[in-house]
Design a protein around this nucleic acid. Structure first.
Lengths: 336, 336
DNA sequence: CTGAAAGCGCTAACAT
DNA sequence: ATGTTAGCGCTTTCAG
């Protein structure tokens, strides 16, 4: 393996100059710089990045902690992170927790050992005080998920207002018996969407009937099962707000299997606007999270922190948007 | 930052002993080991992994090159890689190429600079000879994609036979006018699925009508568009084999928009068995790729290579499976 | 603008 | 079983 001293020797300069050519080319006279560059080319020299990382105790790598790679919401966010990271010469290390808290703690060591320059969390189940300590010492950003009570930099949408928007949309379409199938209620995201649902009902003088609120777990299957329950009710709902798009597909399937048509007999609104909601038939009306932008923004903030600018350590709330498709009945299908 | 020498000093041993406690505990007497461990705990010592990487020129990190994170086939494979890597203390660095060949070349440098111990490619668009050279010097495994002519370790399914299975299934159901919407034909995967389709027709004494073969790009939209074309034909097909599941959804949508029912008027078989195919209504009959296992196996082979065992440098062909759902008409829907 | 020299923290021969 | 020692290849003061 050819090393810096080989280049230096062959170019009749010192190692220091070679190093400068690589990292601060403008501080080297053009003629020497060109000479060194030529030799580097000629010897096909590749700097030993590990030595560099060691010496500088920086890795140009950031860690992304993901609860579940298979969830496309996270892949979209990851895409945004990746994009912004790439632009600034940073690499992305993936940390899949499979929703296990212990894994989150484990990955913290990467930060502490300076194996990565910063961390983006797409899920924060760990103890708040632990996270708070970490966040004071190292660059950390939270996105998709969020926490109450500690001032950790966060990029999200307003899930309460989004939940309200989704529900109000159904109310405006004339529904008064509206169910909500929530996400796992230990997640703040799910709680907030539920909160928004409640607010919308109350503000429109509609009763909140707890029997119409069922907890799901974001899977198609849970949407199917909970909807099947709701349809067995004496007074089943005429509309459902689903806390994500995948559950919405389960809800629609359950309705069909029960002999109902969507949206004629049951209106459905989902959440996220993942590709599935556009592909599915009927197209699912949904709240769009700006997933790519969330990833982008999170990375941007992280980079600021890495560069010592802590002024960006705040909460960022991005805009959501109601995307109207067929499942809610607001828009007629082309062929009907 | 507390370092190894601090621990050594406080424990009245040499740095070497501390290092041994960390990396080869069994070579240290239990009493000294416990003493050192206690001090490590007490001082909250975290080894400087960067120094270790430098010194050992190993990083316990592997690189996964992905053409597109949003494609769930790749996320599933990634899941398998991640799982196997985690078991052996390896970390996974993500490299998204967005299907740009230049990016592939770029990421090669990570290997050459020893920033990663090995590489798994989920797409190999780069020049074969370049890849061949790399593969001779560094641990590399190819999966999902594959190449002809160079002996690079590969984990895939037999796409020709899979294409044949899918098509034969439609033939057995009595169809004789079967279309095929392919993936991008510059991919060997797509070419092979097409080859299987052709073989099935020929072996069953059916004509191959080129008008029934249309090239798609794996998106829902391309499935929709190509199917719309096929439906405008004087003799439209009664069945379609789609080179992936997402296009199958587009095909079904096009059929519906044309007033046809699936599977009654048009039978559809997809490919991959991603979650979408199970969620979609009607459920899509498809060829299941063992995605998780492919990732697992690829990682396993890579680890062997990293550990200097090159006997595993061969091609591995995993089993595919036909999953029958509603879209082909072999199984009646519950409610019909 | 360039060179000399020190040393980052760890590992692994080699010696005891 | 443990200690001694010599770097790994780079970056970065500090001098010149």
């Amino acid at each position: 393996m050819v090393k810096m001293s080989d280049v230096a020797e062959k170019a009749n300069v010192s190692k220091a100059t070679v190093s400068r050519v690589l990292r601060n080319p403008e501080t080297v006279k053009k003629t020497t710089r060109d000479k060194v560059l030529a030799i580097i080319e000629q010897l096909n020299y590749q700097p030993n990045i590990l030595a560099r990382h060691f010496r500088r105790s920086e890795t140009n790598t950031i860690l992304v902690v993901i609860p579940n790679i298979l969830n496309t919401v996270f892949s979209h966010i990851l895409g945004g992170i990746e994009h912004e990271a790439g632009k600034h010469g940073y690499r992305v290390l993936l940390a899949n927790t499979n929703r296990q808290v212990e894994k989150e703690y484990e990955f913290l060591d990467h930060l502490k050992q300076r194996q990565v320059d910063g961390m983006i969390l797409l899920s924060a189940r760990m103890d708040k005080s632990v996270l708070y300590d970490v966040m004071k010492q190292y660059p950390v950003v939270l996105t998709a998920d969020y926490l109450e009570g500690i001032p950790i930099p966060t990029v999200t949408i307003d899930n309460v207002s989004s939940g309200r928007t989704a529900t109000e949309h159904l109310i405006k379409l004339g529904h008064s018996r509206i169910a909500h199938i929530t996400g796992p209620l230990h997640l703040l995201v799910s709680q907030d969407r539920l909160k928004g649902y409640r607010q919308a009902l109350l503000q429109n003088d509609l009763d909140v009937d707890n029997i119409l609120i069922q907890e799901g777990d974001f899977t198609h299957e849970s949407g199917y099962n909970q909807m099947t329950k709701l349809l067995a009710l004496e007074h089943p709902p005429t509309a459902v707000f689903s806390a994500n798009d995948e559950m919405a597909t389960g809800i629609i399937k359950a309705a069909k299997d029960h002999g109902l048509s969507v949206p004629e007999d049951l209106a459905v609104v989902g959440f996220d606007n993942v590709k599935l909601s556009a592909i599915y038939d009927p197209g699912i009306t949904t709240i769009a999270q700006p997933m790519f932008e969330m990833g982008n923004k999170a990375m941007e903030i992280l980079l600021h922190q890495i560069n010592g600018d802590d002024s960006c350590k705040k909460q960022y709330v991005l805009q959501n948007e109601l995307v109207i498709r067929e499942s809610c009945g607001a828009k007629r299908k082309n062929n009907s």
